[in-house]
Simulated scan of single mutants.
Amino acid sequence: MAASKVYYTNMRSSFNNSLLQKLERLIKKAGIENIDFNGKFTAIKIHFGEPGNLAFLRPNYAAVVASIVKELGGKPFLTDCNTLYVGGRKNALDHIDAAYQNGFSPLTTGCHVIIADGLKGTDEVLVPVENGEYVKEAKIGRAVMDADIIISLNHFKGHECTGFGGALKNLGMGCGSRAGKMEMHSAGKPEINTEYCIGCGRCVKICAHDAPSITKAKAAINQDKCVGCGRCIGVCPKDAVMAAGDESFDILNKKIAEYTWAVIHNRPHFHISLVVDVSPYCDCHAENDVPIVPDVGMFASFDPVALDMACADAVNRQPVMKGSVLDEREHTHHDHFTDVAPETNWRVAIEHAMKMGLGCSEYELIEL
């Protein structure tokens, strides 16, 4: 397979060249105008950010994408699916409130917010996955499947279960209904290291499925109730909640690739990643830590696999941000994401996505 084209611009700006202007030029140079948007419903898949998190993409970026789609005759809407865990985005009403709270409204972005899997996360379409190794029918939010065109607008950052979150994560996990998310997470169940546990109960509070409990000042996780969403890993102040050593996160990454296939197969799609505020963990957290590297830039491509690979390579070329989690870790893996979350292997998703025919890891980087 020939190398895919990935377009890139840095985060430098001037009086006559703002970041939003640079984003518009990047998207158009990458070829978005080659898509026929005329009269087409266009889903712009974005993460609105958990309330309390400040690393999510600013709505100004979404406004640029929506404006281009409308300029080309399309009907854009911003979308995401409800979360599996307890938080500010677990149903459509709370989710829209969270989006508005974080600045994503029709007044600021020029288009509406639609929560793709409905009020309670049950409005889904079963999409057959050809050659799926783990997923035979992906459970995708209905509004995503009703759209004619898919655009992923990704905040590229670290992730405690998948290594990083980029185009594949935004589409695969993000477009899954609540049942779909449960299916993807079901192979990744965490464990408690009781030596580190202080019995604070944060894991109990964050779990939507009553899996953790505190007995004699130590946490335990009921594996029958646990769905493997990994939220307890992120909230533990002592790193006592750890991923099980059974390669389950590899399976999670493969399922994400298969769900991504379900989302974009046989439809026009385009992908944009902003490698800024590269927090160590997902924007699903109600907080965000110091970025692990300096801001890198903006990337765009028709190939989500090449895009994720280009962004990962770019991050790994960056110096470590002083005072970050990455700065505190031993750098033994020669990979920033693995150093932050050693139990993960982000390359599994890339390799499986290539196997599914989603794209190519080889890319030609074109700098603007």
Results as ranks from 00 to 15, higher is better:
Leu119Val: 13
His285Ser: 10
Pro304Cys: 07
Asp239Cys: 03
Cys111Pro: 04
Phe249Pro: 00
His112Met: 12
Asn288Leu: 10
Ala217Thr: 11
Asp224Arg: 08
Asn10Gly: 11
Ile256Pro: 01
Thr215Gln: 13
Gly165His: 12
Asp339His: 05
Lys205Ala: 15
Cys226Asn: 10
Val320Ala: 02
Asp97Phe: 09
Lys45Gln: 13
Gln21Trp: 10
Asn266Phe: 05
Pro294Met: 11
His285Pro: 00
Gly103Phe: 03
Glu130Asp: 14
Asp277Lys: 15
Pro294Asp: 10
Phe48Gly: 09
Gly163Trp: 11
Asp303Leu: 03
Leu368Thr: 09
Thr79Gly: 10
Glu343Asp: 02
Ala312Gln: 03
Pro268Phe: 08
Glu330Ile: 13
Thr162Ser: 15
Arg202Trp: 14
Phe302Ile: 08
Met321His: 11
Val65Pro: 01
Val64Arg: 05
Lys29Gly: 00
Gly359Val: 02
Val275Asn: 04
Val69Ile: 06
His352Cys: 00
Cys282Thr: 08
Gly245Ile: 00
Ile68Leu: 13
Val340Phe: 01
Met184Arg: 05
Ile96Asn: 00
Gly49Glu: 02
Val276Asp: 14
Cys197Arg: 08
Phe37Val: 04
Asp308Met: 02
Asp117Ala: 09
Pro128Glu: 11
Pro304Thr: 07
Ser18Ala: 09
Trp261Ile: 00
Ser248Met: 02
Asn60Arg: 13
Asn53Ala: 04
Gly39Asp: 04
Ile292Gln: 04
Thr83Asn: 14
Met1Asp: 09
Val65Trp: 01
Asp97Thr: 08
Leu72Asp: 00
Gln318Phe: 07
Thr332Pro: 00
Gly132Met: 09
Ala349Ser: 13
Gly103Asp: 03
Ile44Gly: 06
Ile221Gly: 09
Asn10Cys: 07
Ala310Asn: 01
Asp313Gln: 07
Lys169Met: 07
Gly87Lys: 08
Ala66Pro: 05
Glu183Cys: 05
Asp277Ser: 12
Gly74Thr: 09
Pro190Tyr: 07
Gly188Tyr: 00
Arg89Asp: 05
Gly230Cys: 06
